[in-house]
Design a binder for these strands. Structure first.
Length: 429
RNA sequence: GGAGGCUUCGCCUAGUCCGGUCUAUGGCGCCGCACUGCUAAUGCGGUUUGGGUUUAUCGCCCAUCCCGGGUUCAAAUCCCGGAGCCUCCGCCA
């Protein structure tokens, strides 16, 4: 028995693109700061696999006719026929073992090569390009940070979060809890208005889902794993939304298939020791409304810009000053071909804080998950997947508390949120 | 958690007991063609997915009967493991 064909292998960049235009893949590697020589390893593995598969196919064909000969052999020739068939069976078995090894080697080589970038600036984390700044930063003589504001309002309790669950856990209470619920509702209302299918999704998923969305590669240490059940806690509803249509053929004739998923998100935050240790900027658990689109490859770029526009629309409703950056190639996840972040102003630290992020994963996830669409010619065609944060609870709360804080310690509620919160100001109880 | 039944190429289904042209049956749906004022009806043909080969078309080859192993010259069919669905029992918000 053979491994799944490369079309379903994980980590797959389009092998046809690779064969036709390896230089483009190499250029992508260079822009990411990854080794372009890995592309040649992948090419070699692909070629090797093709040769081995061709041979095994031929041997299997021969085996068919030989075992058929056994069936039809006269009684006195039967023993000899079985003998020949037995010999050939051994050769086929060997060829299939080679096939298995070649498939595995290709699979490994593919894991080394992340998605081919779509454009955007080369370089690493600091090489982003600022596309625009929107809104006015608040003028505050002595801005309080969200921890202090949250304590005064009895809205955020990090101390007891730590007592009960450890560092990077928190309680939202009173207006803090209400604020999150209001934000979730506002975000969902916007998404539904825009035609998204609202969805509440599983937070625990099987390995295939995690692997298929590309989170078990370089992100693996970030992910909580329940070994007892071999289930993973999702870090974003993207995982469950993408995997929902695993091994399906979608009908995208009527346009993109869009979900707005709500889920709790779990992140180990390994490797970020000492980073954002104060407050709820970086936590192990938060809630998020995530936009997720399935669309055709040719429409993926337009869809990406649409997701970004919806993110900005939401930030505008919250009256937050923000900027949009075009994330550099070296700072992309392995599945993303391009990524834009929206960063809100953080008055207490006088810096920008990532609030939302939208990625175009082109066919990378869909290929791993076996998701295709019925093409115009009726044959299955490749699909692109895209994701974008609409509302991540904790950081959005941080941004609102800090940017809308008043000199008297209260917090002004942005207009769009008032009907969901039933008040214009957040005050200490 | 326990017991039993089930899973076949879009949907339904034959085949599994007893291994071999299963190169998987039939129906529905869908596509094409023919016939016909139009439609309908009827007839004929086609209709899983992936890989390999081919300049390309046509085609040819290989794999695919929930998934993964095993037995065998040969597996939809036999054996082991897993997943899912259904029924009943137990437990539970």
């Amino acid at each position: 028995m053979r491994m799944p064909p490369p079309g379903n292998l994980e980590g797959v960049i389009d092998l046809r693109l690779l064969r036709d235009d390896p230089e483009r893949v190499r250029a992508s590697q260079r822009a990411r700061g990854e080794d372009p020589a890995l592309v040649d390893g992948l090419l070699a593995a692909d070629e090797r696999r093709r040769a081995v598969v061709t041979r095994a196919d031929a041997l299997r064909g021969e085996q068919k006719s030989v075992s058929n000969a056994v069936r039809q052999a006269a009684p006195d020739e039967r023993a000899a026929a079985v003998g020949r068939a037995r010999e050939l069976a051994a050769i086929v078995k060997q060829a299939e073992a080679q096939e298995l090894a070649a498939d595995a080697a290709l699979r490994l080589a593919q894991l080394d090569v992340p998605n081919v970038i779509e454009g955007g600036p080369p370089g690493d984390e600091d090489d982003y390009v600022v596309l625009r700044e929107v809104g006015e930063k608040p003028r505050l003589d002595q801005p309080l940070d969200h921890v202090e504001i949250g304590e005064r309002l009895a809205a955020i309790d990090t101390e007891r979060g730590a007592k009960v669950s450890g560092a990077r856990f928190y309680y939202l209470t009173g207006v803090g809890a209400l604020l999150e619920l209001a934000l979730v509702n506002l975000a969902m209302a916007q998404a539904v208005e825009a035609g998204f299918i609202p969805a509440i999704v599983p937070s625990l998923v099987r390995p295939e889902a995690m692997e298929g969305t590309g989170f078990l590669g370089s992100h693996a240490p970030e992910v909580y794993h329940l070994t007892e059940d071999d289930l993973y806690l999702v870090g974003t509803s993207e995982v469950a939304l993408a995997a929902r249509h695993m091994n399906e053929i979608l009908d995208l004739g009527a346009g993109p298939l869009r979900y707005a998923g709500f889920s709790t998100c779990f992140r180990r935050e390994a490797g970020s020791y000492g980073k954002d240790t104060r407050g709820i900027i970086r936590v192990h658990q938060f809630d998020k409304v995530e936009m997720f689109s399935f669309t055709t490859l040719d429409r993926a770029h337009d869809e990406h810009l649409r997701l970004l526009a919806w993110e900005e629309e939401f930030l505008a409703k919250l009256e937050l000053p923000y900027r949009v950056i075009d994330v550099a190639a070296g700072d992309l996840g392995s599945s993303a071909a391009r990524k834009y972040d929206c960063e809100a102003w953080l008055p207490s630290q006088a810096r920008w804080l990532e609030l939302t992020s939208t990625s175009n994963c082109t066919d990378y996830q869909a290929r791993r998950l076996g998701i295709r669409a019925r093409g115009a010619d009726g044959r299955p065609a490749l699909v692109a997947t895209l994701n974008g944060t609409l509302m991540a609870s904790t950081r959005t709360i941080v941004a609102i508390l800090e940017n809308h804080q008043q000199p008297d310690g209260s917090v002004r509620v942005p207009k769009a949120l008032r009907s969901y919160l039933d008040r214009e100001v957040l005050e200490a109880p």
